[in-house]
């Protein structure tokens, strides 16, 4: 997987955390999908609800054994092809 800081690195260095809820058709912007702790209405949806798609999954990963950046990975779960890797929350 291509880390924005470290370039192409083996998959073992990365850790999957979760599928981002309800951004299947979204822009993949991490800030929009983020965990806003003050928004009570969406808290449940943020943690538990997501649309499982065979073609597209936007997921949070961390480059734990590298630069430790949190990443927003847009990939196709059917083929394993990674469409894009962006920094979670835009800048860190």
């Amino acid at each position: 997987m291509a880390c924005p800081f470290c370039g192409l690195r083996p998959l073992e260095e990365f850790l999957f955390r979760k599928t981002v809820p309800n951004v299947v058709t979204g822009s993949g912007n991490g800030a929009a999908a983020g965990t806003d702790v003050t928004d009570s209405a969406s808290a449940y949806a943020q943690v538990y609800l997501r649309v499982d798609s065979a073609e597209r999954s936007v997921e949070e990963w961390q480059h734990v054994a590298g630069c430790r950046a949190w990443l927003l990975v847009d990939r196709n779960p059917s083929t394993g092809v990674v469409r894009s890797v962006a920094l979670l929350g835009g800048t860190q």
């Binding site: 850790l15 955390r17 991490g30 800030a31 983020g34 965990t35 806003d36 949070e60 961390q62 734990v64 430790r68 950046a69 949190w70 920094l87 979670l88 929350g89 835009g90 800048t91 860190q92």
Partner: peptide, 16 residues
């Protein structure tokens, strides 16, 4: 320790 570190880093990423 490492788990909590990841947790804090995750929250920090969201609160850019």
């Amino acid at each position: 320790g490492l788990h909590v570190l990841s947790h804090l880093e995750h929250h920090r990423a969201h609160r850019a």
